[in-house]
């Protein structure tokens, strides 16, 4: 090509330099193969994974991330079980870049590997690939002793959005690890069934505030408004303002009229962020909120004043629409 253009290097030349005695030179050849953009480089890169120098192997694992598809995935999977942790870490990152569902095969196989970090990386790669046959290994991985594996398993199941994952995700909402409970609660957001809602409900009473926060947020997505409103109203009394905030926001989204008086009470809360949730009162637009909002018009915080003004306007509009 040449001229003013960036070169597309000759694979044969790079392959020749992979045989150099010096590790640095081999490494440079590996980088070229990564940038070649030519799938014929994949087998050459797979060969690099047998290099005696860990730095060269790591470069190989990285370079493979430039490619997609089954052949690249198989090589990346090989790098994932490398004894050198840096090589494996580079492979884990490359695996997460894959988008072609065909790339899933080797990772389904590795989901039961002896090393926890390999299992976790394999599941992490499977998430975006959304392959139906990842369901089984992911369900099994939910019982993994290692929490870093379980959290990825929740991800795989959540991305699949399939009814049959609900029972397992429900169990995961009671996991010993709060991070997994958080993930499982959000993963249930897609499900409209009573069983799923009930599990999220229960999470509103979780001992960990961040789990409760996620639950309060997730309940705002559902269509089962009438069903969840009482539990969310109860969450307005949570010890953590972060949870109270999400509960108010969700109640706003659900337009839960009977929650309006309780949300209005937060207009005098000491936390500015909570007072800003006056926006929920605008979404609900109940005329009965007007006096509380009027009283908050001169809040010392400008953001609160702005939201209050917006909420009052919503109430006006709703009233005008009813008259018309």
């Amino acid at each position: 090509m040449g001229g003013p253009f960036e070169a597309y290097s000759d694979l044969d030349e790079s392959a020749e330099r992979l045989k150099a005695a010096d590790a640095g030179e081999r490494r440079v050849a590996v980088m070229e193969l990564g940038h070649a953009g030519d799938p014929d480089a994949i087998p050459l890169l797979a060969g690099v994974l047998a290099d005696p120098d860990a730095g060269v192997r790591r470069e190989g694992a990285r370079a493979l991330g430039e490619y997609d598809g089954l052949e690249a995935a198989e090589a990346i999977a090989l790098a994932l079980i490398d004894a050198d942790p840096d090589v494996a870490a580079a492979a884990a990152d490359s695996a997460a870049e894959l988008r072609d569902p065909a790339a899933a095969d080797p990772f389904i196989a590795l989901a039961g590997h002896a090393s926890a970090s390999v299992r976790a990386a394999a599941l992490r790669a499977l998430k975006e690939l959304r392959r139906g046959d990842a369901l089984k290994p992911a369900l099994e991985a939910l019982r993994d002793p290692d929490p870093s594996v379980r959290v990825q398993a929740v991800g795989v199941l959540g991305f699949l959005k399939r009814e049959e994952t609900i029972p397992a995700l429900r169990i995961a909402t009671a996991d010993a690890d709060p991070q997994i409970r958080r993930a499982a609660v959000s993963a249930l957001a897609f499900a409209q069934s009573a069983a799923a809602t009930e599990a999220i409900h229960a999470a509103l009473r979780d001992e960990d505030w961040m789990v409760r926060e996620v639950a309060a947020d997730t309940l705002g997505n559902g269509a089962a408004g009438a069903l969840v409103a009482p539990a969310l109203i109860a969450a307005l009394d949570d010890a953590f303002w972060q949870v109270r905030l999400k509960a108010a926001r969700s109640l706003g989204r659900l337009r839960a009229v009977n929650a309006a008086p309780r949300i209005a009470a937060s207009l005098v809360a000491p936390q500015v962020n909570l007072r800003k949730e006056a926006a929920a009162l605008g979404e609900i637009a109940a005329a009965s909120s007007r006096p509380h909002l009027e009283a908050a018009r001169d809040d010392p915080d400008p953001d609160v004043r702005k939201t209050v003004g917006w909420a009052l306007r919503q109430i006006d509009r709703r009233a005008a629409a009813r008259e018309a």
Partner: peptide
């Protein structure tokens, strides 16, 4: 997204859009 650029996603793999103002 198909190119492999990673956006924040919910646990269900949907785009996790954040609300900054009302």
């Amino acid at each position: 997204d198909r190119f492999g650029i990673r956006f924040a996603k919910t646990e269900n793999g949907d785009f996790a859009v954040k609300k900054v103002h009302h």
